[in-house]
Structure formats: C-alpha cells, structure tokens
Nucleic acid binder design. Sequence first.
DNA 1: ATATAAAATGTTATAAATACGTTTAATTAA
DNA 2: TTAATTAAACGTATTTATAACATTTTATAT
Lengths: 244, 244
Amino acid sequence: MKPEIIPNISVDCVIFGFDNATKSLNVLLIERVLKLENTQNAVVNDYVLKGFHTYENETIDETANRVLKELTGLDNLYKKQFNVFGDPNRLKNEKDVIWAQSEHFSDRTITIAYYILLPTDVVQTKSKFNPQWFPVNQLPQLGFDHKKIIAEAYADLKEDALSKPIVFELLADKFTIKDLQDAYETILGVEIDNRNFRRKLITKKYIIALDEKQVGVSKKPSQLYMFSKDVYQKIYKESYLINI
Amino acid sequence: MKPEIIPNISVDCVIFGFDNATKSLNVLLIERVLKLENTQNAVVNDYVLKGFHTYENETIDETANRVLKELTGLDNLYKKQFNVFGDPNRLKNEKDVIWAQSEHFSDRTITIAYYILLPTDVVQTKSKFNPQWFPVNQLPQLGFDHKKIIAEAYADLKEDALSKPIVFELLADKFTIKDLQDAYETILGVEIDNRNFRRKLITKKYIIALDEKQVGVSKKPSQLYMFSKDVYQKIYKESYLINI
DNA sequence: ATATAAAATGTTATAAATACGTTTAATTAA
DNA sequence: TTAATTAAACGTATTTATAACATTTTATAT
C-alpha cells in the first residue's frame, strides 16, 4: 500500500553543482510544462526546483533524500535545510494554482527548503525528469517562489562557505589547490591571492597531499589533494574565538 | 470571522532569557496540565515550549510573532528560525496523543522552531499562561520532543554567538563590558581573559561608550555602553575571510 | 583620611593575515 | 637535444590580531 502524501507540506531542493571545467556555479532545474487537452499551447511552461510533498510516514530529511535519489540516483549528498517558505500567497498566482490543481496538492503548501552541494558531473542529466543546469546568475523563468528560494539558498551558501568545510562537497574527491581556489572565487565572487590562499590551505592537516598528480595536462601537472572529514572532525576544537 | 488553524503545521518558540543578576541563561516554559473530568489526577503534567498552530492566512514568521506577543506582550524580538521538526513519531507517545486530541490538532504535526533572545526581566511572567524561567541546564520534565528542540536551539545559539552580534539581544540597552563578558562566558561555558576581551570589544566602533555610569553600586561604578546596529551594518564589510 | 573592591589599563611574545615577485618543472615546439 | 612555454609552487617583509600575564585607578564606605 502506497503511503499518502501530506497535501500541504513539501520539500524543495536547490541543487548547486560546481562545474570545474567552466568554473561555474550552477543550479539544477526541471521543466514545468502543462498543456491543455485540446491544444498544443502550454498554459504553464517554465522551470522549477525539484521537490515533492512529504509522505505521512516520512521525516522531512527522508523526503529530501527521496527526492534527491529520484532525480540524481545519488545518496548521501551534502544537504542543508536552510529555510521554510510559508507565505499563504506563495502559490497563489494563476499558473501555480493551475499546477497545484493538476497535481492534487494544496495551494496553501508550506515548503521546507534544502540546498545540496555536488560537482555537476556526478549527475546523470538524462533521467526521466530531464534536469538542466543553469548558472546561478543566469536563471530562466522560474515557477512558484523558486527564484526567491534560490536567492536565499545562495546567500546562505556564501555565508557557510566562509566558516565550514563545505566547498569540498562541490569538487571531485581529488582536487588541486587551484580547483579549490576557483571554487571559492566563484562562490564568493571575489579574487583571492593565490600565494596566501595556497599557504593557508596546505597547512591544514585535513587537506592531504596525495601521491598523485594531474594527468592529461599540457603543462606542469599539479599536485592532487583530498579532504579528510575524519581528520577535520578530530582536530576541530571548538575554538571559542569571538569574531563579531 | 476567525481564521482557521492549519491542523498539521505549528511553530514552537525557544525563548532564551539571560538573567544578568544571577548570570543564568534561562528558557521560558509553560505548564501543560490535563485533568480527567471526574478526578483531580492529572494525566498530563509537565512543561512545554510556547507554540501554536499556523493560521490559514499567516506566514510562519507571523505565527511566531503572534505567539510571542501573546505570551510576553512584546513585539520586534530577535528571533531565528533554526530548524524544522517533522519526525512522524514526534507526537506519538501517549501523553502527547491525549494532548493533541484534547486540543484538536493532528499528531502528525510538523513544527517550525524558532529561538528568541531577550533579557529575562522584560517578560511579565504574571500572564495568563503563567510562564516560568528554567536554567537551560536544569530543565524540568518536558512534553513532546521539546527537550530535543531546546538542545538544538542552544547548540545553534552557541555557534551564532561567535560570529554574529546577537549576545547584545540578551542584555539591556545599556550594559557594561563585564555584563557582556559574563553573557559570553555563560552561553559558551568558557572563561575569557577580561583584559583581552575588554580591549577587543571596546575597539569595535559599534560598541559605543555612553556619558553614563552604573548607579547604585557600592564600589567603583563601571562605564555603560550601547550596541549600535546601524553602525554595525554600515561597517560590516563582507570580509570574505575564509576560516575553516 | 584610609580601606575596600571592582574597574580599567599595559607589555611582550607568538601567530596569522596581507601584499608583493621569483623560481620550478613538465610539456611542446624547434 | 635543446629551448620555449606556461602554470605550479614557493619566500619574505610588514602589519594586524591573539594570548598570556600583573598593576594601577577610582568611587564608595568606614
């Protein structure tokens, strides 16, 4: 017996992917298209975040995991529940009402929003949902209040990136210091001195040099590193350094 | 016409109050008592956070503001929405089910949890809800999953206190540097060198010395300061200092 | 006038951040 | 084989911040 959905509670996932080749921070969106029965004209045709309503027997985190698995095939992704969107009018514009009716959920749905971090190339974009990557600064027309949700997710990501080791989640397991710096520069929108950045990062005990270098590059290949979450958690002393 | 409540969505408020006289970080709780009709024996008798279900026409923030106004008579309190509690079994123990039935809400309610910061003495504890302060480390028997909610709120407060100017919310408008240090020490559970703390804080431009000293003390009265949110926001340059 | 007690201040050593140019090493072209 | 190319990798001096520690100041009470 299939579990029932809770018609007024959903989860939406802002999936951030970092494309290391183009140095672009992207968001994964799916198309929302609704055509009338007798015509080919789409009454709704835009993009939205992947989301779904919570089932009666699920926690909110489980809903998020289910949605992510469905879209990407992946488990154990880094995710953060960063805000709740519960404005009574958030789904009250015409297209959203039509959509809610066609999908049988309440247009007084509150959504619990997560953001997810991964490297773009781990996602199979040939899934049945036909997801597409868009640079976070060049988004298409978005349905519901998803423009706002993405903006808030990005603001939260910028803030967290400064104090938590989450940028590693956007890179492959093996990365160069340059890759890491590029990721920071793209996310924060700033330039960083490469000498100071390098010195600072390679002295961290949880950033570990591998016995391996880049292959297939036409110039001096660079050293590969990995991030050790274990080491990080061990040496993470709560420093109690007040920094206001 | 009274607005309808949404029976499965609520807000709970962890109200933190700092008692400057006893140097104690407290949580404001209300009693939850349910007596059977024919007897004086209470079937439910414990403490809970103040909360309430969301109305159809409210945002989540408005629900929180309404709940806070109702309990404390106050507006414009510092509040942060820090997590959502949506485990399907979170209200499924016997007492909670009885309570949910008596109050006509769903025992599959998800709650959006906020914490609030204020000095204890701004709250009139003689309100009809008879709220009581308990030290955060000596809480009474708690209903629902409120023990867990408070623990997570406190963890989040500790973290935010290190990087955001929120400790001021726990003090009166005029405070001494000693008051500020005491608040930090209590919240973080650490001792801080007063010479270094004082130097660091009084050099901040948003901590402003007033033309005023403590009165009614039997020893050298100390200088009073205020926190200027305006100045803070003006000089708050996003420093982009990576600190992982 | 003196005692009291908390408020307020100072110095030195170490560590971290910033601002800069130069050297190194692997690949590719001559 | 040698030289040119180009990104990777490294160094130093200056400034700023933190950490560790003891003494002086000042309003009130005696």
